[in-house]
Design a protein around this nucleic acid. Sequence first.
DNA 1: ACTTTGACTATAA
DNA 2: GTTATAGCCAAAG
Length: 105
Amino acid sequence: MVYATVKQIPHGRVTSYGAIARFIGMARSSRMVGWAMNASHRLADPVPAHRVVNRNGLLTGKHHFGTPDRMQRLLEAEGITVEDDRVKDFDKLYWDPAAELSLDE
DNA sequence: ACTTTGACTATAA
DNA sequence: GTTATAGCCAAAG
């Protein structure tokens, strides 16, 4: 479910672990989302985890992409500006699955 | 089976 | 604004 939701994140948008967690039913399990992401990269499942940041718009998981620079580079490639490990205009780029997505699609 | 840790979040000081 | 603490659930040691 986590992967399915994260994969639905539009290009150039970001969201928080909590939003995803709540959307799939694990409202208090934002950590599990991150954990699932960590497991996801070893699967044959291309999850755009770089679009998933913490509630502060901070690139907390940047270190898990192999190199700390990789996540920011991907975000910038999406048209997102990153300053000091943080997504610029985060509140504008924030994409809420519960607000724009349904349980299917 | 118990303890520790972890890509988080919310509240309090 | 930051730092500390608690809640949360699952996996690894």
